[in-house]
Amino acid sequence: MLPPAESRDTESDETDPVIGILRQAKQLACQYYELTGKPLGVTGEIAEFEAARLLGLTLHVARTAGYDATEIRNGQPYKIQIKGRCITNTNARHAGRMGSINLNQEFDSVMLVLLDHEFNAFAIYEATRGLCEELIHAEGSVARNVRGSLAISQFKSRGTLRWVREEPRK
């Protein structure tokens, strides 16, 4: 288990080696996308770290079945599955789909970390397991019913906004 990013023994973000590596990964991912038109495949890791850093979550080791992080709520660990999505046009009406949510795994909620074209978080939404189950089991889409893949717009409209980036005033 990794401690929340905010509790690490670092003087600032500038001295945290993980933040330095992620900064480089973000730059490489942007360059790779510009050259190939394809994602580099680091969105999930960046999303997990951003959620931990911004919300004080405790990240768990890779491949922990069902969840990526925990947060203490009402004195108990609350298991959170984290999904990330890079959205290059934040004004777009349709932002695509989230990664699959496996209801056979143990978790209490799902967080969706939305990243801009530079892989910086601009919003984090959360939905309880119960709401995810309701949305996935609703009649309709094969992507939703079989693969457990929800539309980002649907998740945002039914979930709770946990964090949003403050935009500078003009």
Results as ranks from 00 to 15, higher is better:
4 P>R: 07
26 K>F: 04
9 D>N: 14
11 E>S: 08
154 Q>N: 09
141 S>N: 15
92 A>L: 06
149 S>Q: 15
77 P>K: 08
157 S>R: 15
16 D>L: 00
51 A>H: 03
122 F>N: 02
40 L>F: 12
170 K>W: 12
83 K>C: 05
100 S>H: 11
87 I>Y: 01
142 V>D: 12
51 A>I: 04
165 R>M: 10
10 T>L: 10
49 F>I: 07
58 T>D: 07
25 A>M: 12
28 L>W: 11
85 R>C: 11
31 Q>A: 13
162 R>G: 03
147 R>Q: 14
18 V>A: 11
140 G>W: 09
143 A>Q: 15
115 L>R: 01
125 Y>H: 14
12 S>Q: 04
76 Q>P: 03
51 A>D: 03
118 E>Q: 15
48 E>M: 05
35 L>A: 14
120 N>F: 06
169 R>Q: 11
83 K>G: 02
62 A>V: 09
139 E>R: 15
168 P>V: 12
13 D>K: 15
162 R>M: 14
32 Y>T: 06
103 L>Q: 13
115 L>Y: 07
34 E>Y: 06
109 S>Y: 01
140 G>V: 07
168 P>L: 14
59 L>N: 00
55 L>A: 06
44 G>F: 03
74 N>G: 08
2 L>V: 04
137 H>R: 15
14 E>K: 12
98 M>S: 00
104 N>G: 11
73 R>N: 09
93 R>L: 10
50 E>A: 11
98 M>V: 06
149 S>N: 12
1 M>Y: 10
92 A>Y: 05
30 C>G: 09
45 E>W: 12
81 Q>G: 08
54 L>T: 06
22 L>Y: 10
19 I>T: 07
99 G>Y: 03
48 E>A: 05
77 P>R: 06
5 A>V: 14
153 S>I: 10
129 R>I: 09
96 G>K: 06
46 I>V: 13
